[in-house]
Amino acid sequence: MLDKIGIAKRIAQEVQDGFYVNLGIGIPTLVANYVRNDIEVEFQSENGVLGMGPFPFEGTEDADIINAGKQTITTLPGASFFDSATSFSMIRGKHVDLTILGAMEVAENGDIANWKIPGKMVKGMGGAMDLVASAENIIVAMMHANKRGESKILKTCSLPLTGVGCVTKVVTNLAVLEVRDNAFHLLERAPGVSVEEIQNATEATLVIAGEIPEMKM
């Protein structure tokens, strides 16, 4: 079974040379730390920066340079700043190659819910609805089950949707799943986790074709 860093490490393998990547808050933010250093990748943050670098050293933080999680950041050579409408032109206009974000629920038709629990929690969707509506390559990074132990991989989402039919891949602490033809296809198992354990932890029915390999970490 993977921890959050393991999920980030596995997703980092999906990042390819020449990709512009938007990372959501939480586990997705960690992905930047594990991308191979022999490829060229630029990270976009929807509050208005392309070419985001690591966190600053203490004493060099700049209140005017933050990421979408409101964390202080640095920029790399070649970086640029821009306004919010331009930022979402990059996203809506499909110029960003890969979107990695967290979720509360994902359904087998690719629906995603991650912005609201009616009567309990309403923080808002931020840029998530714009991202999932336009991106063609959307990977969800999340734990397989919620804090109550219930599967977040579902036949149908029960929470208010963020987007419809948009998720292409899900990486959890247990498995890598591809969303295709209205079904979750099991691609890989987390180290030490059996196919049976994954299916037992999943509300949706998994498509399991042949031998399922263990993730190469």
Binding site: S87, I91, M129
Partner: peptide, 10 residues
């Protein structure tokens, strides 16, 4: 009134 961020900007 919660509005998607890109829609808000636009």
């Amino acid at each position: 009134e919660l509005t998607p961020q890109g829609t808000l900007a636009e």
